[in-house]
Design a protein around this nucleic acid. Structure first.
Lengths: 163, 163
DNA sequence: AGGCTATAGGACCATTTTAGTGCTATTTCC
DNA sequence: GGAAATAGCACTAAAATGGTCCTATAGCCT
């Protein structure tokens, strides 16, 4: 769990494709072929990304999509926000007013803190890094060592496939 | 998004209740009353937690549940693992063998890194901290400042309610 | 021994969320 | 005006989630 949706994963692949040639305008169908993702899905995702301001679109003949700003200025958090709304570990936040133990519940405070920790990590990673274009500066230094030690217990989780 | 399920949230509340009196054995129904969570749900969750080794159970008359080990030695990651399986940002990990762009996909590497960053945060927080019993040492120092600056843009997300 | 009280482990169903498709309107170039 | 593209919905199918119930088993007490 704590997974991102498949659509968000697709969106990342699409954005990464756009990031490789930022000034080149491409159509949704062209991107579908390039990424091997179903055309209607690509189209739908691009519309969402446009609304969120991550990609710019031109309509009409010879229209298409391109990144709205440099890949270095698009964070992973922005991508998640665009497709899934803001990160919130617990549902409680969208409250329906029926929490009985609200007053005595001390659990929330630290969930909130974790929430921010995760969000911070997502802010620090750019699309350029996700796409592998900015290899010089992946700013999660404290994790370099962790990656080796934790590889065994995380198992195949981190090995992503995109379809 | 990136939320934990409601059941995991419940589980945390239940565990927090157990953490307050670690040596006191309580029944599922007693915990249900205490936490105001529906009894069958509490029972179901406790069974899962028992299987995961987070709580110890005694059967028969005067049976019930208690923490299997001190609250300081139960991490948030362990709780999530128990209820939702290991954290994996992308579905790809549970592969069905139909990823077309596997070879050329450079996106995965950084998702993996983010995955570990998140996991690390979850490892560093114990049940004792979640329950507010161990206020002395909440080990996410770099976030203290972030919490203030980010409070505005995160909105009500972090304000949890438990029902 | 027998009954009461508790957990163990399923099977099961309703609801919600997610994924994916399709249709119509609009914009722009030729 | 027509062709090619995006914009914005509405809709359906499938999967995950949340929640309930039933039967089996273990332990204590009379």
């Amino acid at each position: 769990m704590l997974r991102i949706s498949k659509l968000t994963d697709y969106a990342t692949v699409i954005l990464a494709a756009l990031a490789e040639q930022p000034e080149h305008v491409r159509t949704a169908t062209a991107l579908a072929e390039e990424t091997r993702i179903a055309a209607p899905t690509v189209s739908k995702l691009l519309k969402q990304l446009q609304r969120a301001g991550l990609v710019a679109s031109t309509r009409g003949l010879h229209g298409g999509y391109q990144l709205a700003r440099p890949a270095t200025q698009i964070s992973a958090a922005a991508i998640l926000d665009a497709l899934e709304g803001p990160v919130a570990l617990t549902d409680c936040s969208v409250g329906h007013g029926n929490c009985d133990i609200e007053g005595t519940c001390r659990v929330s405070r630290v969930w909130q803190r974790l929430n921010l920790a995760i969000r911070r990590s997502l802010y620090e990673v750019s699309l350029a890094q996700l796409a592998g274009l900015d290899t010089t500066q992946v700013r999660l230094p404290e994790l370099e060592r962790e990656m080796q030690t934790a590889a065994t217990r995380v198992g195949p989780s981190g090995v992503n496939r995109h379809e």
